[in-house]
Design a protein around this nucleic acid. Structure first.
Lengths: 108, 108
DNA sequence: TATGATTGTCAACGTACGCAGACAAGACAA
DNA sequence: TTGTCTTGTCTGCGTACGTTGACAATCATA
């Protein structure tokens, strides 16, 4: 999930926390932060501590990636003039992809 | 690039800034922050403002993603017992991949 | 040499972050 | 109903963040 704003972070955190069946208090203890701070993050406050966000993501088994903001179209180098596919059904079988670009997102 | 710590953020920022040929002062003006703060981020300080980090990444044409911290091995569902490939040369041609999992990282 | 650009670092200052503790509202089950 | 759990929000408080302005060290170039 792309994070353009603090609201995106909020959605990712709350969604993942619900998936794990955790309360704000549970997550706060896991991550070593206060429950109020969790509520603050989930409310979309922008000026929160970046280091604490990393700890929070770790407690949620989420990872943060930073990469060049290129388009998905870079991955499908074979279909030059085709519109950027957004759904799997838009991609025909056998379409060549740039595997290097894909692997980059998975490196430790 | 996976961001596990503030030092990873520092490396991503400095590397990208150098690629763009920008000075700290240039980048500070672009992102609307102080030059001292840029230097602080590039020094790997953890407790920096998350919202300002997002603005900084925007000024560097970088994007932040948050996703489940799954292994690369999930992508290669066809090679069950094979070790998780780390280099493109480790992946044999024709290996089936989980395209849904790949596309997820590119959604807006 | 001199000059300019870049970067690390410091001091001072206003602001607000994150904390503990508390309270109320809502949901749900016994 | 009562009790428990969850969440949003408020207080006060100590701390440190981010800013401006400045200085020195380094490097490259004229």
């Amino acid at each position: 999930m792309k994070v353009n704003s603090a609201l995106d972070l909020a959605a990712a955190v709350r969604g993942r926390r619900h998936d794990l069946g955790l309360s704000q208090a549970d997550l706060a203890e896991r991550a070593g932060v206060s429950r109020v701070w969790i509520a603050t993050v989930e409310a979309g406050k922008r000026s929160v501590n970046f280091g604490l966000v990393l700890r929070l993501l770790g407690a949620l088994d989420l990872k943060m990636d930073i990469s060049s903001s290129r388009n998905l179209s870079d991955v499908f180098k074979g279909a030059k003039d085709a519109p950027t596919p957004r759904n799997l059904s838009d991609v025909s079988k056998g379409t060549p992809v740039n595997l290097d670009s894909i692997l980059e997102g998975y490196r430790e």
